[in-house]
């Protein structure tokens, strides 16, 4: 279980997170929605320790993640996670399969090269990429293909907790459907805990057990996806309907 308690984070005078409280139960899928620039990506990075919160706590199974001081503890902590970055963040000096199998080629999860490659090709297939892409470099791929390679890398080592930062942005509707199904499968079949950021409401409905809306630096609304459509919160309503009129200003 992941829990954020009163997390604050500011960049200079830009107060991004102003007391985020959020709980994600083990084996469930949480989707975070919210306007552009509200700090969704920063929230994920706070959990992973890529961004250090100014105050507040992030707990993993009741233990403060900031207490993982030694390298070995950090490694063990991070080995439980997979993350798809918003921009893909593929290593452009490595081929596609070496990217996907990065974790399997070094460190505690090291496997023989042939085996690592086979796993990479299999994961690529799951995100709808042909085996031929395995030997290409990230720069040779389209934006949506890069996104899917990033996704394959995030799930390659079969982590228990997976973060997806906008997994379907830049994909065609069919491919977006494939990815939504894949994320759902990972949660249901592999029992992984997922935290997904998305702007795509059809994706929210396909992936989420629970939904949280980030607005004004706090979790403005949270609840099961089934209650989302009946919620009366005007902010949430405006967001779901995508209307320019409402309490959320269009210029932020």
């Amino acid at each position: 279980m992941i829990e954020l308690r009163d997390v604050h984070k500011a960049f200079g005078s830009n107060k991004v997170l102003q007391g985020v409280d959020l709980k994600i139960d083990k084996g469930t899928s949480m989707v975070i929605i919210g306007g552009s620039g509200t700090g969704k990506s920063v929230t994920l990075k706070c959990v992973l320790g890529l961004v250090t919160p100014d105050s507040g706590q992030v707990l993993l199974e009741g233990q403060d993640v900031a207490s993982n001081r030694s390298n070995a503890e950090r490694d063990a902590f991070l080995a439980r996670f997979g993350m798809l970055f918003q921009g893909g963040a593929l290593f452009d000096s490595l081929t596609v399969w070496q990217n996907v199998a990065f974790r399997l080629l070094r460190g505690s999860l090291k496997k023989p090269k042939e085996e690592a490659r086979a796993i990479a090709v299999e994961k690529l297939r799951r995100v709808g990429l042909k085996p031929e892409t395995a030997d290409m470099f990230p720069a040779e791929l389209s934006g949506g293909m890069q996104k899917r390679v990033g996704l394959a890398r995030a799930i390659a080592a079969e982590p228990e907790i997976i973060f997806f930062d906008e997994p379907t942005t830049g994909l065609d509707p069919i491919m977006a459907g494939v990815i939504n199904e894949l994320i759902r499968e990972i949660v249901v079949e592999m029992g992984a805990t997922a935290m997904t950021i998305t702007h795509d409401m059809s994706s929210v409905r396909a992936i989420a057990d629970n939904v949280a809306m980030l607005h004004g630096g706090v979790i403005h609304w949270t609840g099961p996806v089934s209650e989302m459509d009946d919620a009366s919160d005007p902010y949430l309503r405006q967001f779901i309907n995508g209307s320019a009129e409402g309490p959320i200003e269009a210029v932020r």
């Binding site: 990075k45 992973l48 991070l78 452009d92």
Partner: peptide
């Protein structure tokens, strides 16, 4: 330039999440 680009495109963050210092 290489490391700076890696930083800007979050590749350094990705390294960290892949348990690589």
């Amino acid at each position: 330039a290489e490391i700076g680009t890696m930083k800007v495109t979050e590749q350094i963050d990705a390294l960290v999440t892949l348990s690589t210092n």
